[in-house]
């Protein structure tokens, strides 16, 4: 029988990663977590929201989040030994990467890809952000490709330009994993199609239950929390709501 309630855990540490980006660490109690899956994070008496896992270690997990509104502000202000609840893991994650998988993250989307970036060839990770101060994991993945929209770090421009170059240059790319703004992901899908590479993307929609009951996270005919959040590109191509519409 299933048990899906938040398991309360003490915060081990909160670290600042970049401007408005923090990582909260708690004990790893997740059974068989696959990167790309997500958890529901509960702050008692505040709210409960979905997040990916950015550090997947034997004893602890890290959740990297961007401060946006009420929930993430509150989380950023919490201290070691404060209690949060974790429910999950939920959804379908990425397939197993091999070393010739390319992993591309834009903005906060990098966080749920980080455990995969640890597994692929170092130069096969592409990380982008608007600006240097918002760039994630500059030190964690020193040999990755970095892009910033304003050119303050790495290459000036978009992650998709590096992907084009890499796919045009070398043949040995098995597949592409991607997480970021939908406009970026739909561009990645186009590029992969042109180069005939398999592509998997991770989608975000407003979530409540996280386990396929409330219907809140629908994107066209897809139940994102349950049939995703990771989809192979062919399963979202032609979806009228992908890159067009999201319920709040």
């Amino acid at each position: 029988m299933r048990d899906d309630y938040p398991r309360s855990l003490e915060i081990l540490e909160i670290e600042k990663e970049a401007k408005d980006l923090f990582t909260v660490f708690v004990k790893n109690t997740l059974d068989g977590f696959v990167p790309g899956q997500f958890v529901m994070v509960w702050i008692p008496s505040v709210d409960e929201k979905p997040f990916g896992v950015s550090y997947l270690e034997k004893d602890r997990i890290g959740i990297t989040f961007e401060v946006k509104g009420k929930f993430t502000k509150k989380l950023a202000g919490m201290k070691k030994a404060d209690i949060i609840g974790i429910r999950g893991p939920y959804g379908i994650g990425f397939p197993d990467p091999d070393s010739s998988t390319i992993v591309i993250g834009g903005g906060c989307g990098v966080s749920s890809l980080a455990p995969l970036m640890e597994k692929v060839k170092k130069s096969n990770s592409i990380i982008g952000a608007r600006s240097k101060d918002m760039l994630l994991f500059r030190n964690r993945f020193e040999d990755a490709h970095f892009t910033t929209d304003d050119g303050t770090f790495g290459k000036k421009g978009f992650v998709t330009e590096i992907l084009e170059e890499k796919l045009s240059a070398l043949d040995k790319v098995s597949q592409v994993f991607c997480c970021g703004p939908e406009i970026m992901m739909s561009r990645v899908i186009e590029i992969c199609k042109k180069h005939r590479k398999k592509c998997f993307i991770s989608m975000e929609r407003y979530m409540k239950c996280g386990f396929g009951v409330c219907g809140q996270c629908m994107c066209g005919d897809k139940v994102v929390c349950n049939e995703g959040p990771v989809f192979e590109s062919k399963d979202v191509e032609g979806n009228p709501e992908f890159n067009h519409f999201a319920k709040d």
């Binding site: 029988m1 299933r2 048990d3 899906d4 309630y5 938040p6 529901m40 509960w42 505040v46 709210d47 409960e48 929201k49 429910r87 409540k208 239950c209 009951v213 409330c214």
Partner: peptide
């Protein structure tokens, strides 16, 4: 209502 809006304990 705010989340958590649902959960389960077994049955």
């Amino acid at each position: 209502h705010n989340n958590p809006t649902m959960f389960s304990f077994g049955d």
